[in-house]
Design a binder for these strands. Structure first.
Length: 238
DNA sequence: TCATTAAATTTCT
DNA sequence: AGAAATTTAATGA
């Protein structure tokens, strides 16, 4: 019985955490691992930009990636923030994003870029991955639909509360009664996610802090999901 | 209710 | 020190 080298084990571990690979066994993962190398990407690097026709499928092994678009007057609308184990980009047939989307790392990240022939072979050999890819895509559509409804019907305060609750699920780590959002977030970031402005986010965030729904400590946001849920429930619009 | 503008202040690097 | 981020306030749609 031979020890698996630490580096090897770690790489496999990273790969096993990719959402579309969750159905695969260790042997299969090991074979896939050889296909494309992982690269460390510095914070702020734009990996995808509008009209990028390439069909690269990115596996985000570690880090945060922001998917966003820019309006004509240069305002950023953040469509999603992806964390460890997520995928973005496109295959030959399926794009996980629309045309004029940017993808930019929010911190130093470890990504793996799979190219069309490899993706094709992988999907052919492992239909379960294709199935998971569809699940991931439909979940993403679902999220976007919720965002649209939120934008159409709710005021900034409620949109922020919904956003914070969602981020807590996605990136939360327990911190006493609160849940700390484990990602670098400025008020401008939050504004770009709820379709508001930096200033408005500042004032609503401090109101929420006063009410004990959120807590902010040196640019780290913590939220109280139970209280937020209660408030959202108790104060339905209309 | 909230974007906008402007300006002061605090916090990060 | 300089840049980036936050905060406060006034105004108007």
């Amino acid at each position: 019985m031979r020890e698996v080298p630490a580096l090897d084990r770690d790489q496999l571990f990273q790969l096993s955490r990719i959402n579309i690979f969750s159905d695969l066994d260790a042997d299969t993962l090991k074979r896939l691992d050889g296909i494309s190398p992982s690269v460390t990407v510095a914070k702020g690097k734009v990996l995808l930009r509008p009209f990028d026709a390439s069909a690269v499928l990115y596996l985000l092994k570690r880090g945060r990636v922001r998917l966003y678009r820019l309006s004509e007057d240069g305002k950023m609308m953040t469509l999603a923030i992806l964390g460890d184990g997520n995928v973005f980009g496109a295959t030959q047939s399926v794009a996980l994003h629309s045309r004029d989307m940017y993808a930019e790392t929010m911190d130093d990240s470890l990504v793996c870029a799979m190219h069309p022939p490899d993706v094709e072979r992988m999907l052919h050999d492992h239909p379960r991955v294709a199935l998971r890819l569809m699940q991931v895509l439909s979940a993403r559509v679902n999220d976007l639909e919720e965002q649209i409804a939120s934008l159409a019907h709710e005021d900034v305060r409620r949109r922020l509360l919904h956003l914070l609750a969602t981020l807590a699920q996605q990136f939360g780590v327990a911190d006493g009664a609160f849940v700390r959002l484990n990602l670098p977030l400025t008020h401008a970031d939050l504004a770009s996610m709820v379709g508001s402005t930096r200033e408005t986010v500042t004032t609503t965030m401090s109101a929420l802090a006063r009410e004990g729904l959120v807590r902010t400590d040196r640019r780290q946001v913590s939220v109280h999901p139970a209280r937020i849920a209660a408030v959202l429930d108790a104060t339905r619009p209309e």
